[in-house]
Write a protein that binds this DNA or RNA. Structure first.
Length: 771
DNA sequence: TCGGATTCGTGCACGTACCG
DNA sequence: CGGTACGTGCACGAATCCGA
């Protein structure tokens, strides 16, 4: 009784494998074969010893080549088929086998199987012939065994030598155990195998496999480079094809922005987060909006946008304009209730994410907790992924990646430097493929590698080189916008403003301040107030209270460093502007007198930062206010003393702001040091006592730049200090430059000024008429 | 228990922002 | 508007952790 193999109850695959186990050779006649099918049986064939004891594979017709064969055969009918032609045809058809064999994705396993097939062809364990006589659709499997009773077993039916044929449904085969019948089938096979138009293509197949990617041959480095480039760019390419830009934004986005959206969307989808690090002005906001919108449409997500206070309005506009389902939240509103009270948003955009680079920060902890709890995907936006250390990067990434999560890459350069990954594991006890591992590395290469995996960053130069067009007449690059307008790439030309500086000119205010004497004086300041721990008396006249003991402990912990801090700050102010520098000096004197006053009267010291704003109230009480000289610095000690007394009482009124510690606990030496500092600082102030802004060369050079050189242009002036900004604004205004605004932290709505400055690009054209 | 590595916590000046 | 809180600048000793 023959057994039916329909791949439902009995799999032809299993039947063949079982029988092959006891066989020493086999003959297959099929219409089609591929690698997947071959792979099912290749282990059994591997056992054959080769030569006569092999697998003879007669391929009747491959479907894709049907047409080719037909025309070839037609020629035979016309008597045109001859040996050279048949050989050429053979080669041609053999080539088509490559596609047939390698159909599907090239996995490492496939590659191995192909190599094995090649080996078997070379060793003669399998011989392949192509039957060109006529279209042959037969499917026959003949297995020769050592068995006495049934040395020959045949399977006849519909199954090709493919995965589907051997194990897929829809086939029908029977085994033929009856030896007489089996022998007839064997003769039938031999007839065709030895037909004159049965051409051996084993050798050609080996050649083809040699040329394919499954080859063991060595390749030119260039090919390997190309292959790597292909694989490395896989993400970018599939990003571009897989994620569809939302309709509302398709028109708005420039090509390079759309590109960023696709790539970033892929990162966001596959890795749970992405860092968009485009430099300023490339439209991070729009890009992020598009990604959020894309996710909204694809995954029905809602978005939480966390941004600095001054950007909430802008984000609000974007949300409204593109109808994003999103909530905008100022980062400073994140407090302890945030995690519990905020509902679940599956996408979180963090604008200016470098604000959350400090893991110690409370907001950092809360945002991270929220993201973890809600499994939100995170879009980080920042033009400066790191400020002071590489750790800034990993801290931001840690918002959505657990520190010990395997991220698939490691700090290779660092691992190498410690002597390999085994050594690394031994030393640090965690996987080298984690953020923790990266945090150990100081090599920039490692961090670049990490950033490549999570960041989309394009510089202006990159955009210019890859997306911009060249305007020959203007000699300038431009980008065509969707609405047909053309935007030229602004040229950025760093220039230095030269202004005369004569170190012998007694009239130049900066000559005095930039002198070695000033630097030396500042460097030799005792700054005793900033290292109070050093001046605690060993045998205090009175026993310190519990609270005082705590303060004392803290004071001794803060060492000399603070003094260095203080010094650096003074130099920074001096660099910014002489005016700011002088103001800082005056504050210093006042603070010193505050302590001197306390020592004199045996009153406790206020420990903690002194409000500079409070002090300025006193300092600005000067009579020159009405005139345009701006800065009037007090130089009389008595005046300071008097102000310090008032300030002390103010501190007393705001008692809770400070820690209070008895001045009796300190060495008398402190008085001398504070007074010496006062003298030194006053000597500097006296140098520039008559700070006449008209003589300020910095300011004069700036005025020239604004009023003459760039008279018709819009100008932004940046400074680190509010004092400098106020000084400049005041002075420039007094010199007749009317269209100007001073924006500092004290200003209510900085965005409004930004709109005023650049109404067009902010679509605020109608809001303000003029600067 | 030792010692090397790592983390913590602190001081003040300046700036920003929210809450009631 | 006053009160409050946070973050940045940073280096060093103390505390803690970890393995031998």
């Amino acid at each position: 009784m023959p057994k039916i193999y329909d791949n439902i109850e009995n799999y032809l695959k299993s039947g063949l494998i079982t029988t092959l186990e006891s066989s020493y050779r086999a003959d297959f006649c099929v219409g089609y074969f591929n690698l997947r099918g071959w792979k099912l049986l290749d282990e059994q064939i591997e056992r054959f010893s080769g030569e006569e004891q092999c697998c003879r594979l007669l391929v009747g017709m491959q479907r894709p080549e049907e047409e080719l064969l037909r025309t070839a055969l037609a020629r035979t009918d016309e008597g045109l088929m001859d040996n050279p032609r048949a050989l050429a045809l053979k080669k041609e058809i053999a080539l088509s086998f490559r596609q047939q064999l390698t159909f599907g994705l090239p996995t490492a396993e496939d590659e191995y199987s192909l190599q094995k097939l090649k080996q078997q062809l070379k060793q003669g364990k399998i011989k392949v012939k192509l039957f060109l006589g006529y279209p042959l659709h037969a499917k026959l499997y003949l297995l020769y065994r050592e068995d006495k009773l049934a040395p020959l077993i045949a399977y006849v039916g519909s199954s090709n030598l493919t995965m589907a044929g051997l194990s897929g449904q829809g086939e029908l085969n029977v085994d033929v155990l009856e030896q007489d019948a089996a022998q007839k089938l064997s003769d039938w096979f031999d007839n065709r195998w030895n037909d004159m138009w049965s051409l051996d293509i084993s050798r050609e197949l080996v050649e083809i496999l040699d040329e394919s990617w499954a080859s063991e041959k060595l390749f030119l480095p260039y090919y390997i480079y190309l292959k790597m480039a292909y694989h490395l760019s896989q993400e970018a390419r599939s990003g571009i094809s897989d994620y569809i830009i939302p309709r509302e934004l398709r028109e708005e986005l420039l090509p390079f922005q759309a590109n960023a959206v696709s790539i970033a969307a892929r990162h966001l989808d596959k890795r749970g987060g992405v860092l968009i690090g485009d430099v300023v002005g490339l439209g991070k906001t729009l890009t992020a909006t598009a990604i959020a919108k894309l996710f909204e449409e694809t995954f029905f997500t809602e978005t939480l946008i966390i941004c600095p206070k001054n950007l909430t309005e802008m984000w609000g506009d974007y949300v409204h304009r593109y109808q994003l389902r999103a909530r905008v939240m100022s980062i400073s509103l994140i407090n302890k209730d945030f995690v519990g009270k905020t509902r679940r948003y599956r996408v979180v955009i963090i604008d200016e994410s470098h604000n959350l680079r400090n893991r110690q920060g409370k907001r950092y902890a809360l945002v991270r907790e929220y993201i973890e709890k809600n499994e939100s995907r995170v879009i980080l936006l920042t033009a400066t992924p790191y400020n002071k250390s590489y750790l800034d990067i990993s801290n931001q990434l840690r918002l959505f990646i657990a520190e010990d999560k395997d991220i698939g890459i490691g700090p290779e350069r660092f691992i190498e430097s410690v002597g390999g990954s085994t050594e690394f594991m031994a030393r640090y006890q965690y996987s080298p493929h984690t953020l923790l591992a990266f945090e150990k590395s100081d090599f920039s290469e490692d961090w670049q590698e990490l950033l490549k995996t999570y960041m989309v960053r394009r510089t202006r130069t990159f955009i210019k080189n890859n997306y911009a067009l060249w305007d020959e007449s203007r000699k300038q690059y431009y980008i065509p916008f969707g609405d047909g307008t053309i935007n030229y790439f602004p040229e950025r030309i760093p220039k230095k403003v030269q202004y005369s500086f004569d170190e012998n000119d007694p009239g130049d205010l900066y000559v005095k301040l930039y002198s070695e004497r000033v630097v030396d004086t500042i460097n030799s300041l005792h700054l005793a107030r900033y290292g109070l721990g050093n001046y605690l008396g060993p045998n205090p006249r009175k026993k310190p209270s519990k609270e005082e003991e705590r303060i004392m402990a803290n004071l001794s912990r803060a060492g000399k460093r603070l003094m260095g801090f203080c010094r650096t700050n003074l130099f920074k102010r001096l660099e910014s502007s002489g005016a700011s520098f002088l103001i800082s000096l005056a504050r210093h004197v006042l603070r010193n007198y505050l302590f001197l006053y306390a020592l004199e009267k045996d009153l406790p010291f206020p420990i903690g930062q002194q409000e500079s704003a409070d002090m300025d109230e006193f300092l600005e009480e000067d009579d020159n206010a009405g005139e345009n000289y701006g800065v009037a610095i007090i130089t009389e000690k008595d005046k300071y003393r008097q102000l310090a007394e008032e300030h002390y009482h103010r501190c007393q009124r705001e008692k809770s702001k400070y820690g209070w510690i008895s001045s009796q606990l300190f060495l008398p030496e402190l008085v001398r040091l504070l007074e010496e500092d006062v003298d030194a600082i006053l000597s500097i102030i006296n140098l520039a006592r008559h700070w006449d802004p008209r003589e300020d060369r910095h300011l004069n050079a700036l005025e020239k730049l604004i009023a003459k050189t760039h008279r018709k242009e819009k100008i932004l002036v940046f400074t680190q200090f509010a004092d400098t900004a106020r000084y400049l604004a005041e002075q420039l205004r007094s010199r007749g430059i009317k269209d100007l605004a001073c924006v500092t932290g004290a200003v209510d709505n900085p965005t409004e000024y930004a709109y005023r400055f650049s109404p067009l690009s902010n679509r605020a054209k109608d809001m303000y008429d003029e600067i």
